[in-house]
Design a protein around this nucleic acid. Sequence first.
DNA 1: CATTACCCTAGTAAATCTATAGGGTAAAAG
DNA 2: CTTTTACCCTATAGATTTACTAGGGTAATG
Lengths: 136, 136
Amino acid sequence: MLSKKTKYGIKALVHLARQRDRMPVQISTISKSENISQKFLESILLTLRKNGLLGSKKGKGGGYYLLKDPNEIPMTTVMRLLEGPIAMVPCVSLNFYEKCADCTDEDACAVNKLMLKVRDNTLEIFRNTTLADLSN
Amino acid sequence: MLSKKTKYGIKALVHLARQRDRMPVQISTISKSENISQKFLESILLTLRKNGLLGSKKGKGGGYYLLKDPNEIPMTTVMRLLEGPIAMVPCVSLNFYEKCADCTDEDACAVNKLMLKVRDNTLEIFRNTTLADLSN
DNA sequence: CATTACCCTAGTAAATCTATAGGGTAAAAG
DNA sequence: CTTTTACCCTATAGATTTACTAGGGTAATG
């Protein structure tokens, strides 16, 4: 299951991408428009900013804005930031690899084999989908 | 993340599929061979039996066995049984559909759009992979 | 200098996961 | 018919994660 954090994060990013100018948008605006708890959204936008996706401006007329062109933000980046590993098991994860405790031979493992296929496919989709693609 | 339940369930099913004859295999045998807690495995095999994938035999020489040919068991069946929905969000689920509370227009929702692609792809893999494919 | 709006930490209720405990019961072997 | 084997079933509990909420602090603008 996709966490609400990721879901809300994507919605917020798309909201910012749909902005024609690059003017800052207030948290409260996004919160109302997308039906997201303001405080929760605050923490999500904060992690997006800390990880270089968003910039922010304080004081009157402040808010959050995208740092890059939506075309240059693939969903792999967004998903890894918000949701973590794309793979369903750590033993097929590229960025979060971990060996299974119970598995003696990874190459002979059916779960590994199956989930590798799923990961490859999902990764391909996330790689080829940018924030811009989702904003139309 | 894939739950341990699903992971163990797949491993157990593959173990049974690899059996050349259709003789019952004891829980304890699978448990040791696959490094799975016996009691936990018991409950997993029970749900697989209740849902028509496995048969069981009591008493000496008893155990669990596949009811169908591994070729005729697609992973969609296994995944839905053990893991539940294949989709990452309920609003794109075929068998477990639910409307999002926060979403006003599903067709305009970026999360919906993205996760629909992922689901279609993942589903295709699970449909085209049978237990037999994983057992070689 | 007051207001706006982001910044940050901590905590918590609820749900889910991953088992474990503790037996009960049917069937086969001898 | 009795013993053993091995499945059957319910309840519960610790650990972890999720989805927030509380409660303020701080920087920047007008």
